[in-house]
C-alpha cells in the first residue's frame, strides 16, 4: 500500500468521524432549548441565538453549512466562550500536552525497565509482585486514585496543591495518576513482549555463539520485542486522552479533557465537534506513523525479495 493511498484513507476516516459526531449531537435534541429555558425567553431571542450559532434550517442544511465552513477553516462559534470555537480549544492544548507528555514519559520510565526485569526473571518473586501490582493498578479507577493522592499529599501531608495549573507542584499528582494507571497496562505489554522475544530461537542461537547476555538482550531481544509494543502505541495514546477527561476534572486542570466535560454539560456543540475532530486527527496520524514505522522496524513486512 503506498503512502498516497494511506493518506486518502486517513482523510476518509476523518470525514466519517466528523459526520458521525455531527449526526449524534443533532440527534440528541435542539441545543438552543437545552441551553435556554424557552419559558423565560422570547421566540425572537431564541431565533437570534440560533442564527448566531448556526443552528438554523434543517439538519442537512446545518451539515452543509458546517462542512463548507470547516473547509474554509472556520470551526464555528462557541456558545459558552462567546468567541470562536478554535480559540477556545487551542488555548487548552498546551496544558493537555504537558499532562499527557509527562504521563507518557512516566509510563515508559516505569513500564520498560519494570516489564523487562519481570520478563527476564519470569516466575520469580519480583515478577509475581509486579504482576499483582499491575492488576491492582489498572483495576483502580483513575478518579479513585486521584482522590487518594489528594487525600494523602494535599489534605494529610499538605505538600502539594490539590487543584490548579501553573507550577510543577500542580503537575505532580495528575501525572502520577495517569502515568501509574497506564504503566500498569504498559508494564504487562512490555513483559509479555520481552518474554516472547526471549524465547525466540534466534536468542538461543546467539547465546550459543557466545554473545554476551547484555548484548543478546539489546541486539536480539529488544529489536524483536519492539514490534508488538509499537503496534499498541495508538491504543495507549487513546487511553491517555480518555483518562485525561476524568483526571483533569478531578484536579481542575485546564486542559482539553476538562473542556470536553464542560462543553458536553453546556451543550457547546461547536467546541465538542472541534475536540472530537482533533482527537480523531491525532489518533489517525499516530496510526499512520506507526504503520510506516512498523515497515521500517520489521523487514518482513516489505514485500520485496532479494532474489
Amino acid at each position: 500500500m503506498n503512502t498516497g493511498f494511506r493518506l486518502l484513507r486517513a482523510l476518509v476516516s476523518l470525514w466519517l468521524i466528523v459526520t458521525l459526531v455531527f449526526v449524534a449531537l443533532r440527534a440528541t435534541g435542539d441545543p438552543i432549548t437545552a441551553i435556554f429555558d424557552p419559558d423565560n425567553f422570547t421566540a425572537e431571542a431564541l431565533e437570534a441565538y440560533r442564527r448566531q450559532w448556526g443552528y438554523t434550517g434543517t439538519v442537512f442544511d446545518q451539515y452543509v453549512v458546517y462542512i463548507t465552513s470547516l473547509l474554509r477553516g472556520d470551526f464555528g462559534f462557541s456558545s459558552m466562550g462567546n468567541r470562536g470555537a478554535a480559540a477556545v480549544v487551542i488555548e487548552r492544548i498546551p496544558a493537555t500536552l504537558q499532562l499527557v507528555g509527562c504521563s507518557a514519559f512516566l509510563m515508559m520510565a516505569i513500564g520498560f525497565p519494570v516489564g523487562a526485569y519481570a520478563a527476564l526473571h519470569d516466575g520469580g518473586r519480583i515478577d509475581r509482585f509486579v504482576m499483582t501490582f499491575s492488576t491492582v493498578g489498572f483495576a483502580v479507577p483513575n478518579f479513585v486514585m486521584g482522590l487518594a493522592f489528594i487525600l494523602l499529599f494535599s489534605v494529610n501531608l499538605r505538600l502539594l496543591p490539590s487543584n490548579g495549573y501553573g507550577t510543577w507542584q500542580h503537575l505532580v499528582m495528575p501525572v502520577l495518576t495517569i502515568g501509574i494507571s497506564q504503566s500498569a497496562i504498559f508494564t504487562r505489554f512490555v513483559r509479555s513482549a520481552v518474554l516472547d522475544a526471549r524465547n525466540l530461537q534466534c536468542v538461543t542461537s546467539a547465546t550459543a555463539r557466545g554473545v554476551a547476555p547484555w548484548e543478546v538482550f539489546w541486539r536480539h531481544v529488544v529489536p524483536n520485542a519492539m514490534l508488538p509494543l509499537v503496534t499498541i502505541t495508538p491504543l495507549l495514546v487513546g487511553a491517555m486522552v480518555a483518562a485525561s477527561a476524568v483526571v483533569e476534572s478531578v484536579f481542575g486542570w485546564p486542559g482539553i479533557g476538562r473542556l470536553i466535560v464542560e462543553s458536553v454539560a453546556q451543550r457547546d456543540l461547536a467546541v465538542l465537534q472541534m475536540i472530537v475532530m482533533m482527537i480523531a486527527a491525532v489518533m489517525i496520524t499516530t496510526n499512520l506513523v506507526v504503520d510506516l514505522a512498523y515497515a521500517q522496524l520489521d523487514p518482513r513486512t516489505s514485500r520485496a525479495r532479494a532474489h
Binding site: 525466540l200 538461543t204 542461537s205 555463539r209 547476555p213 541486539r219 518482513r300
Partner: peptide, 27 residues
C-alpha cells in the same frame, strides 16, 4: 559466566533445526 562465554565462543558451534527461526528476523 566468563568461562562459559569463552567456551561457547571457541569450543562448540551449534546449528539448529529451523534456520529461519535461528537467525534474527529483524537484522
Amino acid at each position: 559466566q566468563r568461562e562459559l562465554l569463552d567456551f561457547r565462543r571457541r569450543s562448540v558451534g551449534m546449528v539448529f533445526q529451523d534456520p529461519l527461526a535461528a537467525l534474527n528476523p529483524v537484522r
